[in-house]
Amino acid sequence: MTLLRAEGLTKAYGPTTALSGADFALRAGEVVAVMGPSGSGKSTLLHCLAGIVRPDAGTLTYDGRDLTALSDGARSALRRTDFGFVFQFGQLVPELSCVENVALPLRLNGEKRKAAEARAAEWLARLEVDDTAAKRPGEISGGQGQRVAVARALVTAPRVIFADEPTGALDSLNGERVMRLLTDASRDTGAAVVLVTHEARVAAWSDREVVVRDGAARSTEWAA
């Protein structure tokens, strides 16, 4: 079943064209790697798919809904409930403890502080970083930080996780661990993953890949 489908996405930032007619489709539960050289527009594709950025042209449907027609508020709400995010760095709120960081999306959804932090603690344990719960992001390692970020992406039980270079700042071993935990956890929960990366070894954790070149996306294995 196709969960997220994009056709002919175009997006320009001022004079720079980031996307020029990209197509994309995501089935429920699959892990798709978005690859391509830097500057090819893969991050922009992710931002469009996730409803963070509104494309200039093209269609974008999620679960039968036209994402481009939704208001900013509605897209924000969708991101809170249905999507999860992992970025390369700078995503954890430095002054909140790790467990508070993970609880953040739940609290954005209006959940009570206690309940939210209890669930956050479970996810920290699942990602093998329960010892960081009381620490602040500045006091833990990069690998731990990314796992906390993965826990935060998964805590709302999203249907799609968008991960933009999640291992970009990590060494091989830590990167591997983050990828294993991310893919395992998403398969367990049935979440689909859109994984933007330029590293083949990271992309190798996916089910298939999509290559973005000069703003156009090409799927190599996907036959709709």
């Binding site: 996730a50 897209r75 924000s76 991101r79 809170r80 995010f85 954005l108």
Partner: peptide
């Protein structure tokens, strides 16, 4: 800037 943007990605409301 980055942190704010990632919070927006999470669907954080302006009002918050």
């Amino acid at each position: 800037k980055r942190l704010l943007s990632s919070l927006v990605a999470f669907g954080t409301r302006r009002s918050t």
